[in-house]
């Protein structure tokens, strides 16, 4: 990837992120923040590569910490977002005055 191409990717991705979020209702702010928190868990692949190419003990230790933290970011982000959105669906069902036991 040459520098200028990388710069184009950066610019287009920035606009994409802005557009994707621009009309989100307040009620979804918390789940969406959590969801975007999950998405930057992609740092896991970078941490894996960094550890995979580590040679010295110092590099390995830092690399291990990196992978551990990144996995925590990705998995934790996914679990809490999923739990919240599940609940959100249930509350939508209740808004139509369904029986309280109807959620799942």
């Amino acid at each position: 990837m040459t520098g200028i191409i990388a710069l184009y990717i950066f610019m287009l991705a920035a606009f994409t992120g802005y557009e994707v979020i621009s009309r989100v209702p307040v009620i979804l702010h918390t789940p969406l923040m959590s969801g975007s928190n999950f998405v930057h868990g992609i740092v896991l692949v970078g941490a894996m590569v960094a550890l995979g190419e580590a040679h010295t003990t110092l590099e390995k230790v830092i690399g291990c910490i990196g992978v551990l933290l990144a996995a925590g970011n990705a998995v934790g982000g996914y679990v809490v977002t999923e739990r919240m959105l599940q609940m959100f669906k249930a509350s939508g069902a209740r808004a139509k005055k369904d029986a309280p036991g109807a959620h799942g």
Partner: peptide, 13 residues
């Protein structure tokens, strides 16, 4: 891409 999307979406949020 993922980092930049979150960076800009997060800034807006």
């Amino acid at each position: 891409i993922a980092g930049t999307v979150v960076g800009s979406a997060g800034t807006l949020l």
